[in-house]
C-alpha cells in the first residue's frame, strides 16, 4: 500500500485549490450580493481548511470565527438593510485605467511566479515549521500566543486601538440624523 502521509497533502491541496478558485469566481461573478456573500463564506471555510492542513489550527479557527462568523454577517446585514436587488452586469464599460491596472498586476504576478518557479521547488517539509519543537513548547496555539504577547505586544495593543477607533467611526458614520429618529 502507498504511504498515505505523502499522498494525502497533495490530494487535500489540489482539491481545496480547485474549489477555492471556482468559489472565488462565483463570489465575483454572482449577480445577487447575497449570493456573493454566501459564496464568500464557503470560500473562507475552504481557506480555513487549507490553513488547518498547514498546521495552523489557531488561525483556521479564528478565520471562521471572525471572518465567516462576524464580518460576512455584517455584509449580509447591510445587503438586507439596503434591500439591494440583482445587479445588471450587462452594459458595464471597462475604463482604460481599470483594464490597465488589472493587466499590470497580472504581468507582475506572472514575472514573480516565473522567477520563483524557475528554481527548484521548496518543499514545505524542508527547513519548515519544526512540528516536534512546537509540540514540545505546548502546541501551535501556545507558541503563537507566546509570540503575540511578547514580540508583537505593541502591534497587538495598536490593533485593539484600531478596532476601538473603527467601532466609533462606524457608529458615527452610520448614525441617522437626530431629527429623524430620537436617540434610542
Amino acid at each position: 500500500m502507498p504511504d498515505f502521509s505523502l499522498i494525502l497533502p497533495h490530494v487535500v491541496f489540489h482539491t481545496f485549490a480547485l474549489l477555492i478558485t471556482i468559489v472565488s469566481i462565483c463570489v465575483v461573478a454572482a449577480r445577487h450580493p447575497v449570493k456573493s456573500a454566501v459564496f464568500l463564506v464557503v470560500d473562507l471555510f475552504l481557506l480555513a481548511g487549507l490553513y488547518a492542513s498547514l498546521d495552523s489550527h489557531f488561525v483556521a479557527a479564528i478565520q471562521i470565527l471572525v471572518y465567516a462568523g462576524a464580518i460576512v454577517v455584517l455584509f449580509l446585514f447591510v445587503i438586507m438593510l439596503l434591500n439591494l436587488q440583482q445587479e445588471q452586469l450587462k452594459g458595464v464599460k471597462f475604463t482604460v485605467v481599470e483594464a490597465g491596472a488589472l493587466l499590470i498586476t497580472l504581468i507582475g504576478f506572472l514575472v514573480v511566479m516565473f522567477t520563483t518557479m524557475s528554481g527548484k521547488p521548496t518543499g514545505l517539509g524542508e527547513g519548515s515549521l519544526d512540528v516536534a519543537a512546537i509540540e514540545a513548547a505546548g502546541g501551535n496555539t501556545q507558541v503563537v500566543a507566546m509570540k503575540l504577547l511578547t514580540n508583537f505586544i505593541w502591534p497587538f495593543e495598536l490593533a485593539s486601538m484600531l478596532i476601538l477607533m473603527a467601532m466609533v467611526a462606524a457608529i458615527v458614520i452610520a448614525k441617522k440624523d437626530k431629527k429623524v429618529v430620537p436617540a434610542a
Binding site: I62, Q63, V66, Y67, A70, I71, L74, F75, V78, A159, L162, I163, M165, A166, M167, A169, A170, I171, I173, A174
Partner: peptide, 13 residues
Amino acid sequence: IVVAACEAAVGLA
C-alpha cells in the same frame, strides 16, 4: 483579520 474587520465595519457604515 483585525484590519479586515475594521475595514468592513467602516466601509459598510
